[in-house]
């Protein structure tokens, strides 16, 4: 265990040791594995949208959903993305899910984030993979079941001698 005092200036860092597989005890009951495999399927983006949302109407979320992703990704292997939604995050009015979908990826669904009102803000961030240039979508499911969608095109630059 080490402390990174010299590295951090603004933040407290907590470093932790990994827990081995042996510690995985009561996890068998968790639905994680099966669900996630169902989440990521080799399909077209149209099929993915149909599978996840059926024919439910989606409103343009431009007014309340901010999808932050670089317009140009210098390589598709690591693309930082974040989504934030204007939401009071109260027990009666909150964002339940944020989906991230990459249209051109072989497996279009990237992640589904499930939030509770205790999150305080409707926000998620991650670094994702993009196979090629194309739209990235954020689809927001609110606690009343309504859907909001935004998308942005990301150009993926192929490698070369640079970097």
């Amino acid at each position: 265990m080490t402390e990174d005092h010299r590295i951090s200036r603004r933040t407290a860092l907590i470093t932790l040791s990994a827990l081995g597989v042996a510690a995985a005890g009561g996890l068998a009951a968790m639905p994680g594995t099966a669900w996630a495999q169902a989440l990521g399927q080799n399909e077209s983006v149209e099929d993915a949208m149909k599978r996840l949302f059926g024919g439910k109407p989606m409103r343009d979320g431009a007014a309340s959903v901010k999808l932050d992703v670089p317009l140009i990704a210098e390589n598709g292997a690591v693309v930082p993305i974040s989504v934030s939604v204007d939401s009071p995050m109260t027990p009666t009015n909150y964002v339940k899910h944020i989906y991230v979908v990459a249209d051109k990826n072989r497996i279009p669904v990237v992640t589904r984030v499930t939030l509770s009102p205790e999150a305080g803000r409707a926000f998620m961030g991650a670094n994702i993979r993009l196979g090629e240039s194309g739209d990235v979508r954020a689809i927001v499911e609110q606690s009343d079941g309504s859907l909001l969608a935004v998308k942005r095109e990301v150009k993926v630059t192929v490698g070369g001698c640079g970097g």
């Binding site: 140009i72 210098e74 390589n75 292997a77 690591v78 150009k155 630059t157 192929v158 490698g159 070369g160 001698c161 640079g162 970097g163």
Partner: peptide, 26 residues
Amino acid sequence: FLGGRLLADVRSGLTKHIPTWRTDRA
């Protein structure tokens, strides 16, 4: 730009962050 990559200038410093993590190769 060389393709999509911005070429770095030797005068602005090519070495002070090296070794570096290369995100595309991990």
